[in-house]
Nucleic acid binder design. Structure first.
Lengths: 353, 353
DNA sequence: CGCACAATTCAAAACGTTTCGATTAACCTG
DNA sequence: CAGGTTAATCGAAACGTTTTGAATTGTGCG
């Protein structure tokens, strides 16, 4: 158990009086090796604590056994997105089973999204990449397709070539929300959408317009508000809306941060959510405690599951599955009573521990 | 700009009519290469988009150019810790300047903290490791010291051998809070501490007791409440406290999640923060909007800066600096008016963009 | 006994990089 | 111009692994 000379195939082979070739093959149950020898090698490897050197394996095989997930850092500017961590946890946990490790690369505001992906590819930082904030004509998707670099996007594109993705059914969620709100008598329903040309913003708009048409409400562009996906930006944009349009009685937010922004805007505008009957609809993962919770509807998706699905797709891709078969659109779960929902999650968590 | 043959030193050398040696040296400004040649090589490298292959570099130099940050996944169970992302952002951004990449390894509940660090070391996943949740006799610190593996702990230890760390001045923060609260007339001040034997829990207790002694208040063990660092656990523990002890007028929380827990507990107990004059003291990063904000004092530390400091220490360590010189204890900033503080941060952020 | 054939094992090459030591060319000194 | 010094470049080895092709044994059959 001496530690100075690091255990590698060579030391292991010398120690056993075998060749490097045989040891290497024995460790992966090569059929050319005598079963007896296999057992002997494996025992010695375990005893000496041999671990294959990742660099050596890569150089020979071209496989890094790493997957990269891109983390969009500018979103951290104010409250950050705790849900991303749950996703990371899901990805990490799923990859672990197949001996893959996760690299998280922070994408700063200064570099373009494509730069980050290109770097992963060119420096061979990982065998595949996972990214979000997907756009209809996403350049990262194009890049990966061109160089045949395995990837799973969190969000769909409108590109011809099909590829692996995981996405939320935002069109369906928004559609459902508008139908319900209209049923309750709401006439002026605002839609908040993130800027940046993300695919799901378009899908949300489609669901919105489809529902409006169905219930016979007019499509009023002034009810569509766009801003950055942060508390402050959405707050400012929605405050402006409330100030210029007294008829708005419901706001469809994009994620938790913009929901916080909507609530702050309502309070800043002097509204009392209970008295004024303002309805706020949010979308996202595990809901934080909010400034107020009356009149709030929440469309929920567990983000750890997103991560698990992303990782499963990635592993399947690397194992040779066709991208067409690796496309998931996950439905939202509608929550009307947040308090009760939290209690449920709490019991659920307590039960699993 | 042909894409099929990957650009490596060999192709680059052939393209320039130079040897691999010269090209390699030119790219790192080796003094043995004619300045003119250096320029020529660099230009060609840029034009062809040459990026050194991470695996090749590692195999030769033994440097992975990666740093691993361990992410404690069980904390995600409910609200997650958005602050960790800010830290990740800080680490990542700082490493980037020195061409290091960040690996985030999720530590699941099933594996011991030591396992994760050991894996990083044995598989040579990274050149160094950063971890938190440090304990006085931390086994990970012991391990890294024994194998001379570079590390920076977020949190101090009580081990003899000195090592690099970054920590918050929790003792000072708690001390300051108790002094102020006592000055306002509070007599029964509760201290919430996380379970798990973390170093900073002990430091908090020390600051608490020191302040009590100084202002002449008795040390009452029943005012010390311990539970997991989650909303639910802290909520349950603090609710129990409020129910059994009617005299408690202030609660010192540990992080944002336990502060949420304290507020939920107070509300569940039927308290009106304004009317009942309950003071809640929180510690942590960027403060979320909370269920109520009257009577709240917040001790703030920007977590992105934590990450930057951790990364700076790591880089210095790898450059050969003595660990003794890489020990930081950061003071908290006391915030009495959260609303105003958020506005300040907002303007600050707006100014920097 | 000679030959083919299977069962084991091995030597060597390759991946991309850095670096030691050697080589060449050019320049200076006496 | 011989001999020495410097500047610039190059060839080759090494890192740890997998894999191709070859070598060594043992066995069965004619």
């Amino acid at each position: 158990m001496q530690s100075s000379p690091r255990i590698n195939l060579k030391t292991l082979a010398e120690h056993l009086g075998l060749s490097i070739t045989t040891v290497s093959r024995a460790l992966k149950d090569g059929p050319e090796v005598k079963p007896e020898t296999v057992a002997r090698v494996k025992q010695a490897a375990a005893a000496l604590g041999y671990q294959p050197d990742a660099g050596g394996v890569y150089l020979r095989t071209g496989r890094t056994m790493k997957i990269c997930s891109v983390f969009f850092a500018p979103e951290v500017t104010d409250y950050g997105d705790a849900g991303f961590l749950a996703q990371v946890d899901g990805v990490s946990r799923t990859l672990e089973g197949d001996n893959y490790n996760l690299i998280v690369l922070a994408q700063t505001a200064s570099q373009s999204p494509l730069d980050t992906v290109r770097r992963v590819f060119q420096q061979r930082l990982a065998d595949g990449v996972i990214f979000s904030r997907t756009m209809p004509m996403d350049e990262r998707v194009r890049f990966c397709l061109e160089y045949k670099f395995p990837f799973v996007s969190f969000g769909r594109t409108e590109l011809q070539t099909s590829h692996a993705f995981v996405d939320h059914d935002d069109e369906g969620g928004v559609y459902d929300a508008v139908i319900k709100l209209a049923g309750e008598g709401h006439r002026r329903i605002a839609l908040f959408n993130p800027t940046g040309g993300l695919t799901y913003a378009g899908l949300r708009l489609r669901g919105y317009q489809r529902a409006l048409a169905e219930v016979g409400l007019p499509w009023d562009p002034s009810l569509l508000v766009s801003a950055d996906l942060s508390v402050w930006a959405s707050q400012a944009a929605l405050l402006a809306l409330l100030q210029r349009d007294r008829g708005v009685s419901a706001i469809l937010c994009a994620n938790q941060l913009s929901m916080f922004g909507a609530m702050e805007a309502a309070l800043e505008h002097g509204m009392d959510p209970t008295r004024d009957g303002l309805r706020i609809v949010g979308f996202g993962g595990m809901p934080f405690r909010m400034p107020f919770e009356q009149g709030v509807t929440y469309y929920y998706q567990p983000q750890r599951r997103d991560g698990e699905e992303l990782a499963r797709h990635m592993l399947a891709l690397l194992a040779g599955s066709a991208p067409e078969s690796l496309q998931t659109v996950l439905p939202y779960q509608r929550i009307d009573d947040l308090q009760r929902f939290r209690l449920e999650l709490r019991e659920q968590a307590a039960g699993s521990v």
